[in-house]
Design a binder for these strands. Sequence first.
DNA 1: TCGTGTGAATGTTTTCACAGCT
DNA 2: AGCTGTGAAAACATTCACACGA
Lengths: 221, 221
Amino acid sequence: MAMAHRIGGIPLATVQRLPIYLKVLREMRRAGRQIVSSAALAHLLRLDPVQVRKDFGRLGQAGRPRIGFAIAALIGAIEARLDWGRVNAAVLLGAGHLGQALLGYQGFALHGLEITAAFDPSPRVAGRRLHGIPIHPLEDLEARLPALGARMAILATSPWAAQETAERLALAGIEGIWNFTGEILTLPPRVLVQDQDIAIGLAVLSSRLCTRVGGAPPLSA
Amino acid sequence: MAMAHRIGGIPLATVQRLPIYLKVLREMRRAGRQIVSSAALAHLLRLDPVQVRKDFGRLGQAGRPRIGFAIAALIGAIEARLDWGRVNAAVLLGAGHLGQALLGYQGFALHGLEITAAFDPSPRVAGRRLHGIPIHPLEDLEARLPALGARMAILATSPWAAQETAERLALAGIEGIWNFTGEILTLPPRVLVQDQDIAIGLAVLSSRLCTRVGGAPPLSA
DNA sequence: TCGTGTGAATGTTTTCACAGCT
DNA sequence: AGCTGTGAAAACATTCACACGA
């Protein structure tokens, strides 16, 4: 009833570690290094070496005993799996504070993502350009989307516009929605929704802070 | 070797669902509703009713057969567990695009968080006010922190300043760091670090998009 | 009958233990 | 020695099945 626990034959938990591996491996490659052991990577990322080897094994990457893993091959395998080797177009919905922050985020280039256009209902921002990306009026969404070649939309509207905008995106043929609004979206299962709710991270941190010292008892009303 | 799987006696997976429950429950309370069944909640959130009951049970909340759960009591228990019932002070590090977006985020009030000050190294923003919150020069950090009463810091600096800034926060006595930089921080275990790396969410979405149709084979180099 | 509570079964992820290669 | 690969075991989470209460 909950989530898909396997993506293209690879456990979800592994997929979630891939971007972290990729980041460190790219840094090593830039530093001229060619080989790395699972133990070295595990130490850097505070993981178990066996887990690193299993993850790489699931990507079809074999290491060589006494030597380690080839960094270039690992990078290639991870990029292929995440589709981060080339550039994919995406559109941004909502150019408020969060939307503008996402427009300015340099890291997307490293993740094979390029925002090619943004849409916003407010006449104050629509028509302008931010970080070189044109902001169109929201009403132009359906008309412009086909020409933009975007499979993915980044939803950063206000909470109350989230569901309606998502429905328009779904109808317009978008395949995946990266949902920053914190709202629960109800869409046909054809559309993939990935929630990016910062409240979850805050909940984990504040509950850990709260239970660490003055903490709540393990069980009580 | 990886993460703590239990927080104050409650499974991490449960804690991660608490903010979503809370959001829906608060909406119901605002609508005047007093009772809810696990089935109704589960349907709304696309979860299993049994899982909802188990989660509430772990919070010490018992439902009444044929009736359901008392909404007010659930809200109280979740708020207590997350420490979201009252307002906690936090400081923001880095007032760039992301930092400003976080300053403007209205939702923190609902999560018991109030940013009382921000710090930025750039003389262009330091000294100004944004969304009513003063931006101080980064060099004033240690001098001002004690008076602010913040246990938590929100780290939204540039990646290359992340580790250094985090170390200063740790030395200055901050207990928890909510890390938006995507960098891996190395700090004494006394300091709790909660990573909020958007690359992970993107990895899950793009790998699902990628393997859904043209998809990569289950196993290959 | 409707809804909760819970022990048992299933599935997933991590950790252990050890064999093999160089 | 040092490092990989993997089956087995353990820990964890979800789902099933059913007893109980109003």
